[in-house]
Lab assay of single mutants.
Amino acid sequence: FYCSMCNVGAGEEMEFRQHLESKQHK
């Protein structure tokens, strides 16, 4: 899983979902 807007990668879907819901996500 990879967030191109934030340049952030996650190994698991749960981690990626937490990123999308976090304040760090743009």
Results as ranks from 00 to 15, higher is better:
residue 2 Y to S: 03
residue 26 K to S: 12
residue 10 A to S: 12
residue 14 M to T: 07
residue 16 F to T: 05
residue 25 H to P: 01
residue 3 C to Q: 03
residue 25 H to I: 05
residue 21 E to L: 07
residue 10 A to T: 12
residue 18 Q to N: 11
residue 4 S to Q: 03
residue 8 V to I: 11
residue 12 E to Y: 05
residue 6 C to G: 03
residue 24 Q to G: 13
residue 7 N to F: 07
residue 24 Q to Y: 11
residue 26 K to P: 12
residue 17 R to W: 04
residue 26 K to G: 14
residue 2 Y to Q: 02
residue 23 K to E: 00
residue 7 N to H: 13
residue 13 E to A: 04
residue 15 E to P: 11
residue 23 K to T: 12
residue 16 F to K: 10
residue 3 C to W: 00
residue 24 Q to L: 06
residue 16 F to A: 10
residue 13 E to M: 11
residue 25 H to M: 00
residue 7 N to R: 13
residue 14 M to N: 05
residue 17 R to P: 07
residue 11 G to P: 08
residue 19 H to D: 03
residue 17 R to G: 09
residue 11 G to N: 04
residue 15 E to D: 15
residue 22 S to I: 01
residue 15 E to I: 06
residue 8 V to H: 15
residue 21 E to N: 08
residue 7 N to S: 13
residue 20 L to K: 10
residue 9 G to N: 15
residue 25 H to Y: 03
residue 21 E to T: 09
residue 9 G to M: 11
residue 20 L to Y: 05
residue 14 M to I: 08
residue 20 L to T: 11
residue 9 G to Q: 14
residue 11 G to W: 05
residue 8 V to W: 14
residue 8 V to K: 15
residue 4 S to H: 12
residue 19 H to C: 02
residue 1 F to Y: 08
residue 14 M to Q: 06
residue 23 K to S: 13
residue 1 F to K: 07
residue 10 A to R: 04
residue 11 G to I: 03
residue 5 M to C: 03
residue 12 E to R: 08
residue 10 A to P: 07
residue 10 A to H: 13
residue 2 Y to D: 07
residue 19 H to P: 02
residue 9 G to S: 14
residue 8 V to E: 11
residue 4 S to R: 13
residue 1 F to L: 09
residue 22 S to E: 07
residue 7 N to T: 10
residue 9 G to K: 15
residue 16 F to Q: 13
residue 20 L to M: 06
residue 11 G to Q: 08
residue 6 C to F: 01
residue 14 M to C: 00
residue 26 K to R: 15
residue 22 S to N: 08
residue 2 Y to T: 12
residue 1 F to N: 10
residue 20 L to R: 10
residue 5 M to G: 06
residue 3 C to E: 00
residue 2 Y to R: 01
residue 17 R to A: 13
residue 21 E to H: 08
residue 18 Q to V: 06
residue 25 H to G: 04
residue 8 V to G: 06
residue 24 Q to M: 09
residue 20 L to S: 05
residue 2 Y to V: 01
residue 16 F to M: 03
residue 8 V to A: 09
residue 26 K to F: 09
residue 16 F to C: 02
residue 10 A to Y: 15
residue 5 M to T: 12
residue 16 F to I: 10
residue 24 Q to H: 07
residue 5 M to W: 04
residue 20 L to G: 06
residue 8 V to R: 13
residue 12 E to Q: 06
residue 14 M to W: 05
residue 14 M to G: 12
residue 4 S to Y: 04
residue 14 M to E: 04
residue 18 Q to A: 07
residue 5 M to V: 14
residue 23 K to Y: 12
residue 3 C to I: 00
residue 25 H to E: 04
residue 3 C to K: 03
residue 10 A to Q: 05
